[in-house]
Simulated assay, not measured.
Amino acid sequence: MVLSPDFSSAPNLRAALLANREQALTQLYRQAFPPVRRHICGHGGSAEDAQDIFHDALVILYEQAVGGTLTLTSSASTYLVGISRNLWRHELRRRARLPHEALPDDPGPLAADAASETEETRFAVLDYVEQLGAKCKSMLLAFYYFQQPLTQIAADHDYRSVRSATVQKFKCLERLRESVRAAFRTETIEY
């Protein structure tokens, strides 16, 4: 019986990668690639896209682990899935900015406009989150996207208490809501 390596902490992962890189990467691939492939294929990507994104995520994880800059708050496979989701989101944004003529097998201007509007709507809130600033962005993503408990968020963001983190999260959320409302008011006035 072969036990799978413990990749729940950065030192364990670093040691495994330095001791036997091929075995450690193979184990990470087996654990994390299936959910990444499901996510990307379910969000407009192909199996090839999933492989490309996952390989990029593996490189990021590897460089951070071996370089000693990796801090894990969950398992390495969960971390890989999170990196892959972020990379895929950025790839979708990049593709949305490409001129429609540059896309292969362009189905026509009406279908391209509809697809562009759908993607723009889907990622519009993420654009507003980007504008909030690093601390608010980090906190909201940790709470809503990574579903971290407020105790962990308070510790990670150097708040003295969970209550302080809760208040700050609420303020960040209110700033986000106000940004969206202001943009909506501007758009409705223009039309």
Score class of each variant (00 low, 15 high):
residue 70 L to P: 02
residue 66 V to H: 03
residue 174 E to Y: 09
residue 2 V to S: 10
residue 173 L to F: 15
residue 6 D to K: 03
residue 14 R to Y: 04
residue 125 V to A: 11
residue 56 D to P: 04
residue 43 H to R: 11
residue 91 E to A: 08
residue 84 S to Y: 03
residue 126 L to K: 08
residue 46 S to R: 02
residue 99 P to N: 12
residue 172 C to N: 09
residue 157 H to W: 13
residue 102 A to L: 05
residue 14 R to I: 03
residue 110 L to P: 10
residue 84 S to A: 13
residue 49 D to N: 05
residue 109 P to A: 09
residue 40 I to D: 00
residue 14 R to C: 07
residue 95 R to S: 10
residue 91 E to K: 13
residue 131 Q to W: 11
residue 96 A to I: 06
residue 65 A to D: 05
residue 66 V to C: 08
residue 4 S to K: 05
residue 124 A to D: 11
residue 23 Q to R: 12
residue 108 G to Q: 10
residue 125 V to P: 02
residue 131 Q to Y: 12
residue 121 T to G: 15
residue 66 V to F: 02
residue 123 F to N: 11
residue 70 L to F: 05
residue 160 R to Q: 12
residue 186 T to P: 15
residue 74 S to L: 00
residue 71 T to E: 11
residue 70 L to H: 03
residue 41 C to P: 09
residue 180 V to C: 12
residue 3 L to S: 11
residue 98 L to K: 08
residue 172 C to L: 03
residue 115 A to I: 07
residue 114 A to H: 08
residue 131 Q to E: 14
residue 44 G to L: 01
residue 8 S to L: 06
residue 155 A to G: 02
residue 23 Q to A: 15
residue 115 A to W: 01
residue 161 S to L: 06
residue 121 T to V: 14
residue 51 Q to M: 09
residue 189 I to N: 08
residue 116 S to W: 00
residue 64 Q to A: 11
residue 140 L to H: 05
residue 89 R to D: 00
residue 133 G to L: 00
residue 14 R to P: 01
residue 63 E to H: 15
residue 103 L to N: 09
residue 158 D to K: 06
residue 145 Y to E: 15
residue 82 G to C: 07
residue 72 L to F: 04
residue 123 F to W: 06
residue 89 R to E: 00
residue 72 L to M: 10
residue 60 I to T: 07
residue 152 Q to G: 15
residue 55 H to R: 14
residue 159 Y to G: 05
residue 129 V to N: 01
residue 7 F to Y: 03
residue 80 L to S: 06
residue 134 A to K: 05
residue 113 D to R: 08
residue 14 R to A: 13
residue 91 E to Q: 03
residue 39 H to Y: 12
residue 87 L to Y: 04
residue 31 Q to P: 02
residue 165 A to F: 03
residue 191 Y to M: 07
residue 9 S to Q: 02
residue 184 F to V: 14
residue 162 V to Y: 05
residue 84 S to H: 04
residue 23 Q to T: 14
residue 24 A to C: 03
residue 9 S to T: 08
residue 146 F to S: 15
residue 108 G to N: 05
residue 1 M to G: 15
residue 42 G to S: 07
residue 41 C to N: 01
residue 28 L to P: 13
residue 162 V to K: 09
residue 160 R to C: 05
residue 76 A to N: 04
residue 91 E to L: 01
residue 10 A to P: 01
residue 67 G to R: 00
residue 110 L to R: 10
residue 160 R to A: 08
